[in-house]
Amino acid sequence: MSAQAGPGTYSPAAAAGDRRRERKEELRRHLAEDADWPRADGRSFHDCRPAFMQTGPTTAASGSAYAEFGKTKVIVSVFGPRESKKAMMYSDVGRLNCNVSYTTFATPVRGQGADNKEYSSMLHKALEGAVMLHTFPKTTVDVFALVLESGGSDLPIIISCASLALADAGIMMYDLVTSVSVSCFRKNIIIDPTSDEEAWQDGSLVVAFMPARKEITQLTLTGEWSDGRITNAVELCMDACSKLGDILRDRLKDTATLTCE
């Protein structure tokens, strides 16, 4: 049960609605006037990196997924629902247990990824709102994420890949969870930053979003932002999350098609 597809590039530039399009065009002109340099990898400010996603790379797991966004490579395995450890108390809803770790070779300096110990709880909060925990009482679903290479925007890719793995495992969910981050530089906002861009950002914003339900399950912000910029950045992220959600659904359909054949 393995589905593989070529990389798809998604961009939030094609927005729905006239008012939103006008606002985005105005924002784009504003960004273009302030700085006209293309990014190091040739993208414009509001373009995401090519996304490659695949389900089923790990045969031992109930569900698994592999994601590659530019240089960032992530693999996620899902086990369960399975019996909870006896130390845990009885619960009439299921338990979701998330763990994010980095390989020692994931970062330019060996072993540097161990600093991101808060990613596990952030991944848990992002997925908790989407998984129907009441459908597997007294049991536990374990999500293990491993970052094979860290090339920037690691956490959003982990979240998107984990929701794909949960769907591959057959866990009932309200919606897929997709996630995108933006970096803020003095006047400009760029989406899906690389690690080089992240190293010099003035601020950052990470959005985890359920596209079909239009609900935000995770939102974190760093640095100094004004109200208007937060609104613009969140809407930019939601556009990109919707595009990414379409890509995830295509991957799942490919898997289902192969199974039917």
Binding site: K125, E128, G129, L205, I216, T217, Q218, L219, T220, L221, T222, G223, E224, W225, S226, D227, I230
Partner: peptide, 10 residues
Amino acid sequence: QICGLTKRGG
């Protein structure tokens, strides 16, 4: 100015 923002809860 907003200096940080964290959403908590599932």
